[in-house]
Design a protein around this nucleic acid. Structure first.
Lengths: 341, 341
DNA sequence: AAGAATTATGACAGCGCTACCATAAAAGGC
DNA sequence: GCCTTTTATGGTAGCGCTGTCATAATTCTT
């Protein structure tokens, strides 16, 4: 027995058929007007648009996606929203999508590849036009889905590796390496590192390794380090520096995995009466605004988070099809000399 | 002429029909297993799940949404992603949705009700299960859509007004009022205000008005104010305070619309050798971690952003249907005395 | 002016899934 | 044991849109 039309939805929700009827055209013609696709006579377009306005027609994207086997959704999988880094990336993505029909769907992985895989699969159920994720390291299953899917893929932040399709970011290994070189050149010799325990933060690990490499090349090494148990935060940086200096008071510079923790380090120095830079250098990563607004601007590396997000989304929209060639875009980084190291 | 089945999609993408065939059941039974809905014999469920695993079946949500006239998407419309406030809300939403089938789709309105309306309409095309927005102020068209839609609605941050369905937040007017009372009680008399020009930031305006009201009741008033032209930032706070103090050096306390700007104010004081609290009180809003990690913790009001997001998403999931009664949840706020005012 | 190329429109099936019934099988009541 | 209730499964149409082809209307060639 046939189900009554519109039985389980608002009876007054107009469909494309209603628009077409009112405009005196076929459904497919109305559809072409809505999608601005194919040749349409100006008079027809005007009539259809008038009908759309009169009825308050809103296209049903589920039906459109089903019929065309592609959606205007873009899946975005980020490790975290707890500090401003990934919201900055998201902001860049949004900016690039602003005047397009595409909409981002957000997932948060907590730096866990298994959670990433689970969310990825649930996102694929929407047949997204593209998938954006952080980093180049995924589970084998996730990687398989990414490689075989009919959508574009962008892997953000890091470019030290082999991307599925597009990678946009910077070399974190090199950033760590340049941090070491810069600080050695400025005369620092007794290095400390105050990190956090997110072992799966591949980028922080890569910077750490780059730092160690450059120190080694200079005949130096980290003479003390401390890993805060728990998430990165300003408080964590403050506490970590205190612990580090108790263990090894002779340090003349401490490198932090990010600006948040480095700011905490500076706050500890202010509190303990330690003269920053003269007595102890402090170096961060990210180049957050707040660090640069301090009376003594934080010495750090500027990562271009907004640019990474924006560039990635723009690149993804350039072509529907995945090209043969993989694309790697290096957005680079800049050492901000600052006043703290 | 019939289109070839699977003609325009990957021929190897398994559908529910493939799963059903392999499991030896009907499509609808397989569907019930996927959705964990309706009575299914254990043996049948096991067979279907095995078939799903073997084929690597991923449900097509577009088809599901079309057939059921409802989706598992939740539309989230936020004014901005530029400071940590709205990412914190988003984090709360994500936390509440973590173990549910629902996924957030994000839009950014730049505090512009017209942009909000446009994005809302495009989101409604997905027949979302719920819509989350900031504030109670929307365009008439947007309000109409929200009232007539077949989805739940949560309006976040503010509760001073009449919500469509659910409001979760705090009274910003009262927060501003309490700020004034608190500072007067601590002996401050010569008040300055260093704001920003986002006139459409209704919450900041409400706090400002509450502040003015409490000062008036104490026989006082703002004796100087400055509005930074442009977005709020630490740098803006720093510059604004400088300008304010040049215009009116006799101020003994300055209220900022948020912690970011208040931090900038403190940085200006540090730079200019102004003794914070003794010579000039500084008061913010939000209670960000970084302000509390400073040697001199920022005096401010803690807004419960994560809680707001989490509570809203949880409430929305409690019932599919919009109840008769509107719900207003006051998550409250706390004055953090700090050391700066 | 006749044919070729271009532009504009339409008919119709089908995308993959679920709502709506119907029916069959098992369990419970007396 | 017969009837009622509950549990388990299936047939089928249709959700609203767009891809595919076909055709009609217009413009361009030569």
């Amino acid at each position: 027995m046939p189900r009554k039309r519109n039985a389980h939805r608002s009876p007054d929700t107009p469909t494309l058929a209603d628009v077409a009827r009112l405009a005196g055209v076929s459904e497919i013609t109305a559809s072409r007007v809505v999608r601005a696709q194919g040749p349409i006579a100006d008079a027809t377009r005007t009539r259809v648009l008038a009908a759309i306005a009169e009825l308050g027609y809103i296209p049903n994207r589920a039906a459109g996606s089903l019929a065309s086997a592609e959606s205007t959704l873009m899946s975005v999988l980020l490790p975290s929203l707890s500090n401003i880094v990934f919201p900055d990336v998201l902001r860049g993505i949004h900016t690039a999508l602003r005047e397009t029909p595409f909409q981002p769907v957000i997932g948060v992985t907590d730096y866990d590849p298994l959670i990433e895989e689970r969310i990825l699969v649930s996102f694929l159920a929407w047949q997204p036009a593209a998938v954006i994720l952080a980093g180049l390291h995924h589970t084998p299953t996730a990687r398989r889905h990414l490689e075989h899917g009919r959508f574009r893929v962008a892997e953000l932040m890091d470019i030290d590796g082999d991307p599925v399709d597009i990678a946009v970011g910077m070399s974190h290994r090199q950033a760590g390496y340049e941090t070491g070189r810069h600080l050695v050149q400025r005369g620092y010799r007794r290095f400390g590192y105050a990190g956090h325990n997110v072992v799966t933060d591949d980028r922080a690990s890569a910077r750490y390794e780059g730092l160690c490499t450059s120190l080694r090349e200079a005949g130096l090494s980290l003479i003390a380090e401390h890993r805060h148990q728990g998430a990165s935060s300003t408080k964590a940086g403050r506490d970590s520096l205190q612990i580090l200096l108790v263990a090894e008071p002779s340090l003349d510079v401490v490198v932090f995995p990010n600006d948040d923790m480095a700011m905490g380090g500076i706050f500890h120095c202010m509190h303990a009466g330690i003269s920053v830079r003269e007595r102890l250098g402090i170096f961060g990563f990210n180049g957050l605004d707040i660090g640069q607004a301090m009376p003594m601007p934080l010495s750090t590396i500027l990562s271009k988070r907004f640019l990474i997000g924006k560039t990635a989304a723009e690149k993804l929209l350039e072509s529907r099809e995945r090209p043969q060639e993989k694309t790697i875009i290096n957005t680079g980084f800049e050492i901000i000399e600052g006043a703290t190291a």
